[in-house]
Amino acid sequence: MTRHAHRLARWQRLGLFGCGALLTLSGVLWLALHYSVGAGAGELPHPLEAWAIRLHGLAAFGALFMLGVLAASHIPQGWRMSGRPRWAQQRGSGASLCALGALLALTGYLLYYFAPESVRPALGWAHSLAGLGMAALVVVHRRPKSR
């Protein structure tokens, strides 16, 4: 196996990081618009709020597709390679990324379809924190390792 056999193909990296960046930016934009200083009880939502969440949902579909792409080759191959000392630390961050991805898909689905109004704020904050955690963990998982 060559040194870079575990690396994602260029289209996979672009798709994954593109979806991830779009998810993060649209989610942060929605949070900023929804919880802005001017927002108060009885006020109308910001006009861009609906577009930010629509963009977030679209990017989520792309991210789910990319998770399937990763599940087909990168994850199993990375799991096998993580037996080597140089790659062992990526097993933990990779498993954490998979768990966060599943949590984000579940909480996003619940927010969109099932969450009662009494649970929505807490579930929304859990979803937001998990998303920011995932964005940070991608950087840790991706960083070059020393030899």
Rank of each mutant, 00 (worst) to 15 (best):
Gly83Leu: 07
Ala135Thr: 04
Leu29Cys: 14
Ala102Met: 13
Val69Met: 13
Glu117His: 09
Trp125Thr: 11
Leu8Ser: 07
Gly131Thr: 09
Ala59Gln: 01
Leu64Gly: 13
Glu43Gly: 12
Lys145Asp: 00
Ala135Asn: 04
His4Phe: 10
Ala63Ile: 02
Ala126Lys: 02
Met1Gly: 10
Trp51Pro: 04
Cys19Asn: 00
Leu106Met: 12
Tyr109Cys: 13
Gln89Cys: 09
Trp87Arg: 10
Leu129Phe: 15
Leu100Ile: 01
Val138His: 00
Gly15Trp: 00
Ser82Cys: 10
Gly27Ile: 05
Leu100His: 00
Leu8Gln: 06
Ala21Tyr: 12
Ser96Arg: 09
Val37His: 10
Arg142Asn: 07
Gly108Pro: 09
Phe65Asn: 05
Cys19Ile: 03
Ala52Tyr: 08
Arg7Cys: 00
Ile75Asn: 01
Arg13Met: 09
Glu49Thr: 08
Gly27His: 03
Arg120Ala: 12
Ala60Phe: 05
Ala136Lys: 04
Ala50Glu: 08
Pro121Asn: 06
Val69Asp: 04
Cys98Ala: 15
Arg86Thr: 08
Leu29Arg: 15
Gly133Asp: 04
Leu70Arg: 00
His4Ser: 12
Phe61Tyr: 13
Gly78His: 01
Arg13Asn: 06
Gly40Asp: 14
Gly57Thr: 09
Tyr35Ile: 03
Ala39Phe: 12
Ser146Glu: 13
Leu111Glu: 02
Thr107Trp: 01
His6Pro: 00
Leu137Ala: 08
Leu103Val: 15
Gly92Pro: 01
Ala135Cys: 03
Ala115Thr: 06
Ala126Thr: 09
Leu33Tyr: 09
Leu137Asn: 06
Pro144Ala: 07
Ala32His: 14
Trp30Lys: 13
Leu100Met: 08
Gln89Glu: 11
Arg143Tyr: 03
Ala32Asn: 12
Gly108Tyr: 04
Leu111Ile: 02
Leu48Cys: 07
Ala21Cys: 12
Gln12Asn: 06
Leu55Cys: 13
Gly57His: 11
Arg10His: 11
Gly20His: 07
Gly68Ile: 08
Ala32Asp: 11
Leu48Pro: 03
Trp51Met: 11
Gly62Thr: 02
Leu100Thr: 04
Met134Ile: 05
Ile75Leu: 15
Arg120Pro: 02
Leu33Phe: 13
Leu67Cys: 10
Thr107Val: 05
Gly42Tyr: 03
Ala39Asn: 12
Leu44Glu: 15
Ser73Val: 03
Arg10Tyr: 12
Ser146Asp: 09
His127Tyr: 10
Ala102Leu: 15
Gly62Asp: 07
Ala115Asp: 08
